[in-house]
């Protein structure tokens, strides 16, 4: 195995572990850090930030796995996160080419993903019999707000994670990747 290939595999492995930790943090740590009684979509924001930097195919698989893991580890009865995470990652992949930096596409994708996530929560709450207005004001909007707050640490953590692999990313993405990284 050539050195760039090994670096890419190592990067992807560590990204997968990083995402796995993000899932665990969302399931174990954030329930203790509820604000307005809600848990933020931390994993979703991480997936969005990863999608802006990582290989498209790997991100798609990672998004589906992370969504599935989240719904499995979490106690919810519905398993809609794989689909939602994949769509969020796809949005990020689509948006990232239009910008030279990573922050703007991450932010736009996170906003879109959080909105979709909020809609998912709203639909699930309404299915479970919660009044629409109460669900919107009491859970969905705080969840979006909290998600927006955790987006920034998620973005910084992801940026920190990829700092180590800047060279291997540049080799993979070619000139465009180098420009984006700069």
């Amino acid at each position: 195995m050539s050195r760039p290939g090994f670096a890419a595999i190592l990067r992807m492995t560590l990204t997968a572990i990083y995402t796995f930790i993000a899932v665990l943090i969302q399931c174990s740590v954030f329930p203790h850090l509820r604000i307005f009684g809600v848990i933020p979509e931390f994993t979703l924001t991480v997936i969005v930030c990863v999608a802006c930097r990582e290989d498209e195919k790997f991100t798609s698989v990672l998004a589906v796995c992370a969504g599935f893991l989240l719904d499995t580890v979490g106690s919810g009865g519905f398993t809609l996160s794989p689909l939602l995470f994949l769509l969020a990652a796809a949005v990020s992949i689509a948006v990232k080419d239009a910008f030279r930096n990573k922050f703007a596409p991450s932010l736009i994708s996170a906003a879109a993903a959080l909105t979709v996530g909020a809609v998912k929560t709203l639909v699930l709450l309404c299915i479970k019999g919660a009044p629409f207005a109460a669900a919107l004001a009491g859970t969905v909007l705080p969840q979006m707000l909290y998600g927006a707050i955790v987006f920034f640490p998620a973005y910084l953590l992801t940026a920190l994670h990829y700092t180590v692999f800047r060279k291997s990313l540049a080799q993979k993405n070619g000139i465009r990747g180098v420009l984006n990284e700069r």
């Binding site: 498209e56 798609s60 599935f68 398993t79 689909l83 689509a94």
Partner: peptide, 22 residues
């Protein structure tokens, strides 16, 4: 990427997973 085969297959897989497990 949205039109790529890989995305469509992944989307189908994700949808199947979501539907099956739900």
């Amino acid at each position: 990427f949205f039109k790529s085969k890989f995305f469509i297959i992944t989307l189908i897989v994700a949808a199947v997973i979501a539907a099956t497990f739900t």
